[in-house]
Design a protein around this nucleic acid. Structure first.
Lengths: 220, 220
DNA sequence: TTTATGTCGATTGTCGACAAACAACTAATT
DNA sequence: AATTAGTTGTTTGTCGACAATCGACATAAA
C-alpha cells in the first residue's frame, strides 16, 4: 500500500514539506499567511533552495500558492472552494467507488473495517482531528483501489484540501457519533458489493457532508 | 480572457518551461527522455536553479516527472494513460459543458465559432499539429466557462497530456475533414443550449475520440 | 488633502560552488 | 562464469551570495 514510506530516504525538502503540512493542519499557520523563505530557512536550518523545494511539493497539493515576485502564501479555503470540492467529489468519488467495488478483496475489507473500528473509538473520545484523519484515510483507501492513477492523484489533492478546510472550522456540524455512523453505513454498503447501491450511497454521503458543512459555514 | 499574457514579466523559469513544452509537443524531446539540469542550464545560459524552476512548472502539468536523486524525465504516455484520460474526460467534460451552457454568452459563441472556422481552414491544409492546438483550445474554452476553478485546472492538465499523446502518434485516426466535422457538430449542439442534449453529445464525442485512438494505437 | 516621486529595508530571483549519491566500469575473489 | 568490491566520472541535493524587485513610508508637488 504505502510503499512510499518504505526505506525511502526523503530529501530535506520533502521532510520540511511534511512539517509545514502538519502546521497547516494544526492551524499553526493560518489561511492566507505569507511564508517567507528566509525565515523558514532559518527555522529549519536549511538553505532557501530547500525551502523552495518544499514549497514546490505543497504547491502541487494546492496547500500553498505562489505569486511571481510576491511570495508564497497559504491557500485559504472559502465557501466557494467547498462548493467546488463537493462538486468534484460528486463526479469523481462515486465512479471511483464503483470501480473499486470489483477490485476490493478480503484483505482490503479488513483494512477498511479496522479504520471504521478505530473511528468508532475515536468518536467516543470526540477527537475531531483524529476523526478527520481517519475520514481522509478511509476515502482515499477506497479511491486508491480504482485503477486510474490520475483519478487517485486528483482525489488526493481534494482530500487534503478538505482536510484543511475541516481543520479550520471552529465548530463542527454534527456529533462525532453520527460522523462515525455515516461512515459505518458507507462501509456496510461497500460490503454488499452492489455497484448501483454503492453509487447511490456514495452520492448521498457526499451530498450530506456538503450540505451540513455549508449550513455550518454560513452561520460563521 | 488571457489576462495572463498582458505585460506579465515572466520569470526565466516560466519562459524556459514554455520552450521545453514546445519541444515536447514537437517531439524534439522524446517520451521517457532524461532531462539533465546542467545540460539545459548551458543550453539556455541560465543556472540550474532556473532549470529546476522550469521543471517544477512542467511537473505540475505532468509533462515531466522526477524521481528523487535519479533525475527528471519526460512523461511517456501509453495506451493505459489514454484510457485513464478518456475515463476522466468522460466524467469531467460533460459536467463542465453542461455548466457552461448556461453561462456562455453571444461573445463566447462568436469566439467559439471563430475557432471552428479556423479549424475548417486548417483541416483543408491537413495541418494536424495546428488542428490539435485548435481542438485543445476549443475544449478548454468551453470548460473554462464552468465556474469551478479546480475543474478547469484539472481539465487543463489532461488536455495538455492529450495534446502530447496526439502529437506522438505517427498516423492519425481519421481524416482532417471528419475531425473538423466532429467539432462542428459539437459546436452546433452547444448553440442549441439544451443541457441534456449537450451532455449526450459531449459523451458521444469523447467516446468516439477514445475509441478511434485506441483502435489506432493497438495497430502500432 | 491628494497625488507623485524618492528612499530604504525586506524579500524573491538567479547564480555558481561543493558535497552526496548514482551508474558504469574494472579488478579481484569465489 | 558469476559475484563482490573498488574506482571514477556524471548528475542531483544543498548551500550561501549577490542582484532585482517589492512595499511602506516619507517627502515634495499639485
Amino acid at each position: 500500500m504505502n510503499n512510499k514510506d518504505i526505506i525511502v530516504r526523503k530529501s530535506l525538502g520533502e521532510i520540511i514539506a511534511g512539517y509545514l503540512k502538519k502546521d497547516i493542519y494544526n492551524k499553526k499557520i493560518k489561511f492566507g499567511e505569507r511564508l517567507i523563505e528566509a525565515d523558514l530557512a532559518e527555522r529549519f536550518d536549511v538553505s532557501r533552495s530547500t525551502i523552495r523545494e518544499a514549497f514546490k511539493i505543497l504547491e502541487q497539493e494546492e496547500l500553498v500558492f505562489s505569486k511571481s515576485r510576491k511570495g508564497t502564501f497559504v491557500s485559504d479555503f472559502t465557501e466557494q472552494d467547498l462548493n467546488e470540492m463537493i462538486e468534484l467529489r460528486l463526479i469523481i468519488e462515486p465512479r471511483a467507488f464503483v470501480n473499486a467495488v470489483s477490485i476490493l478483496n478480503e484483505e482490503n475489507f479488513r483494512d477498511l473495517e479496522q479504520m471504521i473500528e478505530k473511528m468508532k473509538d475515536t468518536a467516543e473520545k470526540s477527537d475531531w482531528n483524529a476523526l478527520f484523519d481517519l475520514d481522509m484515510q478511509f476515502h482515499q483507501y477506497v479511491v486508491s483501489m480504482s485503477d486510474n492513477s490520475r483519478m487517485i492523484k486528483i482525489y488526493e489533492s481534494i482530500n487534503v484540501q478538505m482536510r484543511v478546510y475541516l481543520a479550520h472550522l471552529d465548530q463542527y456540524y454534527s456529533s462525532p457519533k453520527s460522523f462515525y455512523q455515516e461512515h459505518k453505513e458507507l462501509f456496510d454498503t461497500l460490503l454488499k458489493k452492489d455497484a448501483s447501491l454503492v453509487e447511490k450511497k456514495t452520492i448521498e454521503h457526499i451530498t450530506n457532508v456538503g450540505e451540513k458543512l455549508l449550513q455550518n459555514s454560513s452561520g460563521d
